[in-house]
Amino acid sequence: MQLMKKHATYLVIFLVLLAHCIQESEATRRVLRGRRTLTRRYFAGLGIPGWLLAVIVGIAELILGGTLYLVLNRTILSKQVAETNTYTPAKQNEV
């Protein structure tokens, strides 16, 4: 149980850091100055480069696919198959 709490803590810390790095915002603000209206745009880019984000997503997909394979291998593929014949020849009308 203690080990699971330790991993959960690391996962939460990782997710908070990841959310901080991927935060992307774009805002438009109108500034009124006299009779003219100025429109200003603010853009905050990613905290990590795009190529690193693609690498992280690729690795996460590989880990998720491997985990799913292992789970399905244990639940479905490792079961013993019954050696019964399911084929029965069709009856023919012999006169």
Rank of each mutant, 00 (worst) to 15 (best):
R36T: 11
A8L: 05
T28A: 02
R30K: 13
V16R: 15
N85A: 03
A82D: 12
E26I: 03
L77A: 11
V55A: 03
N93P: 01
N73V: 13
K5S: 06
F14N: 14
L53C: 02
Q2T: 01
T86Y: 13
K5H: 01
G50T: 14
K6H: 12
I59F: 04
V81Q: 13
E24S: 01
L46Q: 06
L52K: 14
M1H: 01
L38K: 11
S25W: 15
L17P: 00
E94F: 03
R35S: 08
T67V: 13
G34L: 08
L18P: 01
L62Y: 00
Q92K: 10
K6I: 03
R74I: 15
T67L: 14
G50H: 12
I22Q: 09
L62Q: 09
A19N: 13
G66L: 08
R74K: 13
G45H: 12
M4T: 05
R41N: 08
G47L: 13
E83T: 14
V55Y: 03
I13E: 15
G34D: 08
Q2W: 04
T67I: 12
T75M: 04
H7E: 04
Y69W: 11
F43K: 14
A19D: 10
I48L: 14
L15S: 09
K91H: 13
E94T: 03
V57G: 01
A44E: 12
I56D: 05
A60K: 04
Y42A: 06
N85K: 11
I76E: 04
K6D: 06
Q2N: 00
V55K: 09
M1R: 02
Q92C: 02
Y69D: 10
G45D: 11
I56R: 07
S25I: 00
E94W: 04
A44G: 09
A8H: 07
G47P: 00
L52T: 10
K91M: 06
N93Y: 15
S78T: 04
N85T: 07
E26K: 00
T39P: 00
Y87S: 03
K91T: 07
Y10D: 15
L32F: 09
A90N: 02
P89Y: 00
A54S: 12
A82Y: 03
A44L: 10
L68Q: 06
I63Q: 08
Y69N: 08
G66K: 03
V16K: 15
A27P: 01
L53T: 07
I76S: 03
W51H: 12
V12Y: 06
T75N: 04
R36G: 05
I22R: 09
R40M: 05
G50A: 14
R33T: 11
Q92A: 01
R35E: 06
V16H: 08
F14W: 03
P89E: 09
Q80F: 07
